[in-house]
Write a protein that binds this DNA or RNA. Sequence first.
DNA 1: GCCGTTTTCGGCCCGACTGTTTTCAGTCG
Length: 584
Amino acid sequence: MYSMQNPEIAAILERISELLEVKGEIRFKIQAYQKAARALENLDRPAAELHAEGGLKALTGIPGIGEGIAKKIEELLATGRLKYYEELKAELPKGVEELLEVPHLGPKTAVMLAEKLRVTGVASLEKALRGHRVAPLPRMGEKMEEKLLRGVEIWKRGQERMPLGEALPLAKEISGSLAGIPSAPGVEYAGSLRRMKETVGDLDFLAFPRKPADAPAVMDAFVSLPQVTQVTARGETKAQVRLAAGRRTVDADLRVVEPASRGAALHYFTGSKAHNILVRELGVKRGLKISEYGVFRGAKRVGGATEEEIFRSVGLPFIPPEIREGAGEVEAAAAGKLPRLVEEGDLHGDLHIHSDWSDGSQPLAELAEAARKLGYEYLAVTDHSQAVRIANGLTPARLRVRNKEIDRLNSKLRGIRLLKGAEVDILKDGSLDYPDEVLAGLDVIIASVHSGFNLPEAEQTRRVVRALGNRYVTILGHPTGRLIGEREAYPIDIGEVIRAAADNGKCLELNAQVQRLDLADIHLHRAKEAGAMVAIDSDAHHVSFLPVARKLGVAMARRGWLEEGDVLNALPLSALLKKLGRGR
DNA sequence: GCCGTTTTCGGCCCGACTGTTTTCAGTCG
């Protein structure tokens, strides 16, 4: 039976909070719905599952969800609808919901425009703006008209978020140019970028000028960066610009902060918001006020130069940015149960790369050399199987020849071992694209779905679970098939897939391709809890991607709370071979 | 609406910028 997924429920709770804001409800009720929505987004199990096991009580056990909201979730799970939400929508002017999606346009203005100008959506809003019917209204004006028109433009382009793999190099470039200012050394980036979220909405930079008098120079440098197309705000300590980056545009903020507030500002602007609120609440309990300027007891600053001081002031150890999502990390830290997150240096090899035998661009020897230079002990060459014609997939005969070539190279290579692998297609019925005799001759087998994305969920799940039952399979490749910003995950019961992997002793892939990052962070967390290991794979088609993949892959793994022991390719070669049943 | 080492009521995180005002509301992060 289909039941509503967490992101859908979270979206409805978020909508309710917006509608309550429009209605002019008290702030705290609005915040309660927002908090509940975030709690659901960050939940690492489907609410439906929790509810099936523990009923209403299991739902109220989630921090931020009490009896009222739990009952609403229950109704959504049971009927797919929510009477309260529908009544709320009916009460308010039509089109207000859409208006709220426009940047710079909040609930108050939305209601006013709907009532006074009968604006019913973004299209009619644009007409009203262009007809200069907005400016004469109270608290409006020509500048507001322009600002809202810019908002409409952004809305029309869609609120695209930039993939982490693109944002990271851009941010490094910018902090690099700003770091050249001698009076303000050490520009840093914060925000979701520092948390290494898979996509980022905007870029946040922090500068720490030695003297307050140096602040304007930093601001000047920021707003005159070559990538800047528009300066949207500029004050004493804060500026906002739009940046052009290839075909995309992205907003970037700069905050200028004195060095004594460095840690407080870094912590605050790194977020997440939910995490910050939890930390500040702990502060309040201890009679402390925590802001981006520091930790204060009364008017006296008692800390804030480093992030460690912030955490220490509320009795916590340092929490790594990647898990600051308000999803249990504060509780874990308080209980001394923070994970020791996996690090780049923990990886001993890569288990997914393509050579020029299929659709990779380089010969085996070059792959081996690049991996050795990165400090890897092993590299599994996993060319495509025959079904993927377009990628020059290998027939069993060609695979045999390639394997001989790998044996020949291994006898000469020092410090690096090539493993014989294949990325084998999972066919529609869940069988594999090579017969077992062929699979038996390989060290590493990644089973992947590359076709039939539109199967119904139950069938897709059955297909993948069957593949996981094959004794030769090592890793399930890019388990959901999503391409960030391009293609949704195919319908599949990921919980069941994770269970099947754990039951069969199979690994799940964390594919580090910029547009894949598949599995996603919350599913990685679930895999860890279920006891399935994860392979952090580059899926590289050129060796230049190997270091990038290591960075992105490890970042995602950290967001999923993974530790060294959860990661297959954190095993040294001998242990890996033993695990693969090929100890020699 | 949620929550409790100030427990069942009375709190609830904190601040900057813009545009419109002339002391502040709205929006955002």
